Simulated assay, not measured.
Amino acid sequence: MTYLWIGIALVGVTASVVAIRSFRPAPLPAPEPWTGPLPGASPPGDMTIHQLPTGTYDSRAALAYRGGSFSDVRKFAATAVLVRHPAGDLLIDAGFGSDVDAHLATLPSFQRTPHHLGVTVRDQLRAGDYDLAGLRGVVITHAHWDHVSGLADLDVPIWMNEAEARYVERDKGAAVFRDVARGREIHRYTFDGPPYLGFPASHDVHGDGSVVLVEAGGHTDGSVVVFVTLPDGRRFAFIGDLTWQVEGVTLRAERPGPLRMLADVQPAKVRDGLLRIIALRDRVHVVPAHDVHAYDPIPHWVVSDRRVG
């Protein structure tokens, strides 16, 4: 028995050493930058995008990317993006909703980080006299609670692919989604288009290259990246949770090992997607969903010359 306990202790020490090392800086290999042509796009002249911040929650940089500091407490964004297009507007994610406290209470205690509720997407749109009839739906980058809480306040179609539909049926991480999506219309789309900027398949929402969804599973089964091209030529990549902070791209720093195992259904696939985005960093503006400052180039939804959110 003595040898058994010594063996157990050694395993525990080894696991602790491995875990500690997984938080140290270890940049991913630098991928070849994307030097090919950018896909064609013909966005209409009156197409615009706007950010609608709905709140933040607190987390530490060390938990977001390898090499981050445990003393660096950051505000993680819960922000939706409104894409206005004459063929029909879309929201990218829905942020916090009015029931966010109840949604947060469904999580395991270790995931209940301090949060700060701002103005919900619904209330921001109402304050701006927005006609919800013009909203084709909400494209979710994936079905985790902090991306879908606001769906409870929006009676519009939820855009989701088949792989994510399978994920929400089985995974405990989609419990909030199952609650807020009950009775809602689900708009299923397929990746019926060609490879796009290194990703294996795509879906062109309007057929003009202005909004293109690409398959980027790994964080959840059906996670996506949403590429948006504006009339002035600017390009954005809304990458969901391929990384939680922009350092995942600028420092080529993935999540620490324990967080990868906890957060991602296929960590290796997340790494592949992140490397594809890193290769594009000089060609598109990359927006990790929870990096507050990544949204800075995007104008806020404005009501009567007053910034909302």
Score class of each variant (00 low, 15 high):
Thr190Trp: 12
Arg21Thr: 10
Arg252Glu: 05
Arg74Trp: 01
Leu38Ala: 11
Ala279Tyr: 12
Val249Leu: 14
Gly209Ala: 11
Arg283Thr: 12
Ser149Glu: 10
Trp159Thr: 11
Met47Asp: 04
Ile49Glu: 01
Val139Tyr: 08
Arg252Lys: 08
Pro43Lys: 01
Val13Phe: 03
Arg276Ile: 05
Gln124Glu: 03
Phe76Asp: 05
Ala78Gly: 10
Leu91Trp: 09
Pro37Met: 05
Val180Lys: 08
Gly118Asn: 03
Val139Pro: 10
Val265Asn: 09
Leu10Arg: 06
His50Asp: 01
Trp159Leu: 14
Val13Lys: 00
Leu63Glu: 05
Glu32Thr: 15
Val270Leu: 04
Asp46Ser: 13
Asp123Gln: 09
Ala26Cys: 04
Thr48Gly: 07
Leu132Met: 13
Tyr167Ala: 08
Leu10Phe: 15
Ala253Lys: 00
Asp208Cys: 05
Met160Gln: 12
Lys269Ser: 15
Ile277Leu: 15
Ala279Leu: 11
Asp99Lys: 03
Ala289Gly: 09
Gly198Asn: 13
Gly207Ile: 14
Pro33Phe: 10
Pro108Arg: 03
Ala62Trp: 02
Arg126His: 01
Lys75Leu: 08
Gly273Leu: 08
Leu107Asp: 09
His144Arg: 15
Ala143Pro: 15
Val139Ser: 13
Ser202Tyr: 08
Leu52Pro: 01
Gly97Gln: 06
Arg60Lys: 10
Asp232Trp: 00
Arg126Val: 09
Gly198Gln: 12
Ser109Cys: 04
Arg136Ser: 14
Gly309Arg: 00
Arg255His: 07
Trp34Pro: 03
Arg252Phe: 02
Gln111His: 10
Arg283Phe: 12
Pro27Gly: 11
Leu125Trp: 00
Pro231Asn: 07
Ile140Trp: 00
